[in-house]
């Protein structure tokens, strides 16, 4: 599986591109709630229905999509498109994934001002803002709970320090991300080194 692009280059037809576009377009247009929801849907389509990607591979693609910067849904689409039909396939799936939100938000933005000035809309937005705040708090509780449960002291410390840095010291986000990435890299390398020395 070293060169999927080349391999699939032979069998890539206009039909494949069309299927790639329509599948990602439909999934993106109907998916509320971002990356963690879209991946199971992509898996169902491309692994179970079309059999274009193997189960095991899909797990690895998911790991790459989640570890890369950017929207998980876009990343996953890029990987699937690339896997099936090389770079042109990736471009097609990006288009399929990006077009629905781009169109929907453009339309909403056009009406945003008059929409926002409506008294009932404004009342509803007041409540929905409180609900979004609750949804995000819930997400934070889930994510942080995961870290605390693993009793990883260094990670808990990093979480607290990062929160103070970003919230109260107004440290540049770029610096926080670079330092955290470095800590992660050093921890992995030293762990691997320790394992090697122990003879694993």
């Amino acid at each position: 599986m070293d060169s999927t692009a080349e391999k699939s280059g032979k069998k890539t037809s206009a039909n494949t591109y069309l299927t790639l576009f329509l599948s990602t377009f439909k999934i993106s247009a109907c998916t509320f709630g971002g990356g963690f929801v879209i991946i199971p849907l992509l898996r169902k389509k491309f692994v179970e229905e079309l059999h274009w990607i193997e189960e095991e591979e899909m797990l690895d693609l998911t790991a790459i999509a989640q570890s890369s910067p950017g929207a998980i849904a876009v990343n996953a689409s890029i990987l699937i498109g690339y896997h099936v039909a090389g770079v042109p396939g990736a471009l097609i799936t990006i288009l399929g994934t990006v077009l629905p939100p781009l169109t929907i938000i453009s339309v909403i933005s056009a009406f945003y001002k008059s929409f926002r000035d409506n008294i009932y809309v404004s009342m509803a937005m007041t409540g929905m803002l409180a609900a979004v705040a609750a949804v995000i708090t819930d997400v934070v509780f889930n994510m942080a709970g995961d870290i605390f449960r693993r009793k990883d002291v260094a990670a808990v410390l990093m979480l607290v320090l990062a929160f103070i840095a970003v919230r109260y010291l107004k440290v540049n986000i770029l610096i926080i991300i670079l330092v955290s990435a470095l800590v992660g890299a050093v921890r992995t390398l030293s762990k691997e080194k320790a394992e090697k020395e122990r003879g694993f």
């Binding site: 990670a155 926080i176 470095l182 992660g184 992995t188």
Partner: peptide, 24 residues
């Protein structure tokens, strides 16, 4: 992918902290 996943693990606490701050 072990190094990439190690970096990701290192980033997770910082990402949570940033989301928490924006949520606040």
């Amino acid at each position: 992918l072990s190094l990439i996943q190690g970096i990701l693990a290192g980033l997770r606490p910082a990402v949570i902290a940033m989301i928490a701050s924006a949520g606040l």
